[in-house]
């Protein structure tokens, strides 16, 4: 199979997994959504397994791990969010786990759900809604509107544009990175089927995937911090 055919297969495949005969296929469920269901199920099982039988005294290794990991993840997000926006910490951590988990699915030879634009749009939309909601909650509706004219009235249009640019850049960055990584991985697999893809998948699937999840969360947290100040 040549490169062109591979790219066509990767990029132009039919994404619909479950076809519903309602409203002309509007409610069709994509493969990516099914994959996120799987991710959710895996995470749920993992969480329930890790947190089952937690004890106050003499915690087992499992409990120590889950406590440490939870506090570590929250610490990462909380450090960026700062004291004032600490209430959004848990939700941002959830986004971090979701994106990180989705990106890591490439490790198992599955096309990551974040390679579907719909998923990244959804996550970016949630993020930007939360940023603006945090701003409104912290400053009030009036203060939030006034915030557009800061630091100067001249850049108000820019600030309004940012409302659209921020989620767009968030979603495109994530989508593009994962798409690029997946395409390159597929090409490498096509060229050398063994050993080499393993090495590259370390970078593209683990490192790049986690870095992108961190960047997404970092920027969202930064926006929230900026919004509540």
């Amino acid at each position: 199979m040549d490169i062109k055919g591979k790219l066509h297969e990767l990029l132009l495949e039919d994404k619909v997994a479950i076809h519903l005969n309602i409203a002309n296929g509007f409610f069709d469920v994509n493969k990516s959504v099914v994959l996120t269901w799987i991710l959710l199920a895996v995470l749920a099982v993992l969480i329930l397994f890790l947190t089952s039988g937690m004890r106050v005294h003499q915690p087992g290794k499992r409990q120590l791990f889950v406590e440490y990991a939870t506090q570590w993840l929250r610490g990462i997000v909380g450090g960026i969010l700062g004291e004032e926006a600490i209430g959004y910490r848990d939700f941002i951590t959830t986004i971090l786990v979701f994106i990180g988990g989705a990106n890591l699915m490439g490790l198992f030879g599955i096309v990551p759900p974040t390679m579907d634009l719909n998923v990244t749009i959804a996550v970016a939309a949630v993020a930007i809604v939360m940023v603006e909601a945090a701003g409104i909650r912290a400053l009030g509706l009036k203060g939030w509107f006034k915030g557009f004219a800061k630091p100067m009235a001249v850049i108000t249009p820019m600030n309004i544009l940012e409302l659209a640019i921020r989620p767009l850049s968030l979603c495109m960055r994530l989508f593009g990175n994962i798409l690029g990584a997946t395409v390159i991985m597929e090409l490498i697999r096509m060229a050398v089927p063994i050993v080499v893809p393993l090495v590259f998948s370390l970078y593209f699937d683990i490192f790049d995937g986690l870095i992108q999840a961190y960047v997404f969360v970092f920027l969202t947290s930064l926006y929230i911090r900026e919004a509540v100040e």
Partner: peptide, 20 residues
Amino acid sequence: ISIANIIYTIINLLILFFLM
């Protein structure tokens, strides 16, 4: 872009949030 899938994903995210 499919609006329905975006909504599904948002719901997924919220479910994950409540789960966590």
